[in-house]
Structures are given as structure tokens and as C-alpha cells.
Computed example of a mutant assay.
Amino acid sequence: MITAIVLTLVLVLFLVQSHLFNEQVADAKTKVGELDQKTSENDQMKTQTALTKLENETGYSLDPGSVSVEEWKQAKAYSEQFYDDSEGKFSKKWGLFLSYQSMKVDIDPAIAYELLKVETGNTFDPDLTGPETKYGHAYGMAQFMTNTAPWIADMAGINYSEEKLFDPYFSMTLSVTYLDYLYDRYGNWDEALTAYNRGIGGLKAYVSEKGTPKSGYSEEIQEMASLHEL
């Protein structure tokens, strides 16, 4: 009889302790959840602050809410890579801006970066004037001609002037906008990049002659971009 009572008391004590333990675990989980939420809110606030600062420094609206905290961290990582790869010629601020603009439209920032590298002969010179062609000169970091740049600027929702072709942020914005347009049109990088290089009409002529949209230009950019994977 006494043994049964003792066992009952032990069982009751065990159940009470288990209940208290479960309450403590639940309370701890709640506190961890609150801490995670607070950390997430702090990270989001820091991201918004950083984007606002970049907006003020570049003069371009960046729509801060369109990129997540994680994507902003990736943009920072890309900017470090691009800075190192260019031996400091492509500034970290440029890298942040280019990566952010690319991510907004789901373009690999490395594709956009390597395109600028090829277009400028690895100089990333925003004041570059390309060689004369039968269509005229190409200007700036992304090497746009004056017959192409205005309608791409209109598509990007920004004002155009010839002087802006030498603004690196204007040039990068046009480049990403045009890449987005071409990729949406063709659905693959060989056609999109060859069209960027030769023009839409030039792409048709190239494919007619070669039987493929793959070009040295498109292959080089894609191959080099693959080396930047995070």
C-alpha cells in the first residue's frame, strides 16, 4: 500500500516537473522567436538605410522594397568580387548599384558585370568613346549609340540626354534594362547577348550566316560570369 502511494507521488511529481519543463521550453521558443523577429526587423532597417544612402549618392531611385535583406547581402558580396576582379577599377559602389539593379529584374549580376568588362576592354571607363562605325560612335561604360539609348532610357523610365551616356549609373541602368528586354524577348543568353552586341537586326543576319546565335561575345561573357557564382 505504502509502495503504491510512493509510486503515485513520484508519478505526480514527474508529471508536474514535465509540465513545468514544457512551459519553460515553450517560453524559451517564444523568446527566441521574438529575438529572431527583432533581428530580422533590424536587418531590414539596415538594408533600407543602405539603399536610401545609395539612392542619395547616385541620384537614382532604387525602389528599396523590391530586394530582400538576403539579396542585399548577395549584392554586397558581388560588389566585393567585382572590385577585386577589376583590380579596383570597378568601384564597390558601382558593384552595389549594378547588382541591385540586376537582381530587381532577376538578371545574374555577373552577366551584367562581364558585359561591361567586355564593352570597355576591361577598363570600365565611363567616359569611353568607341571607334567610329557606319552607325556612329558608342559611348560610356555600356557603349550605347545615340540612336538606341533614348528608347531604352524611356523603357527604363529615366530622362535621356547625350551627356548622361557618360554617367556610369545611367549607363548601367540602360545596360540592365536592355539585357532584361532582350532576355525576355529571346529566352536565352546567346541570342540576348549577341543582339546586345550586334543589334536585333544584326543578330538575324548573324544567325542567317552562322546558323547559330552563339558568338565569341556571348560565350566569353557567360563563361566569365560563371566564375562569379557565390
Rank of each mutant, 00 (worst) to 15 (best):
M1A: 11
M1S: 11
L7P: 02
T8L: 13
V10S: 03
L11F: 00
L13K: 03
L15A: 08
H19M: 14
L20R: 14
L20W: 10
A28G: 01
K29D: 14
T30H: 06
K31N: 10
V32F: 06
E34S: 07
K38D: 11
K38N: 08
D43W: 00
D43L: 12
K46R: 11
T47S: 08
K53F: 01
E55Y: 00
N56P: 01
T58M: 00
T58L: 01
V67N: 01
S68W: 08
E70A: 14
E71P: 00
E71R: 04
E71Q: 15
W72K: 02
Q74N: 07
Y78E: 09
E80Q: 10
F82A: 10
F82I: 10
Y83A: 12
G88Q: 09
F90D: 10
S91P: 07
K92G: 04
K92D: 05
W94P: 08
L96P: 01
L98S: 02
M103A: 04
D106F: 03
P109T: 11
L115M: 15
L116I: 12
E119W: 08
G121M: 01
N122H: 02
P126V: 07
E132D: 07
K134A: 13
Y135R: 04
H137E: 02
Y139K: 09
G140Q: 12
F144T: 11
M145F: 01
W151F: 15
I152N: 06
G157L: 14
I158G: 13
Y160I: 13
E162G: 06
L165I: 09
L165W: 11
F166N: 11
D167A: 09
F170G: 12
L174W: 07
S175C: 15
L179R: 00
Y181A: 01
Y183K: 00
D184F: 01
R185I: 02
G187I: 02
N188M: 13
T194A: 15
A195T: 13
G199V: 15
L203D: 05
Y206N: 13
E209G: 13
G216I: 12
S218T: 07
A225M: 06
S226P: 02
L230S: 06
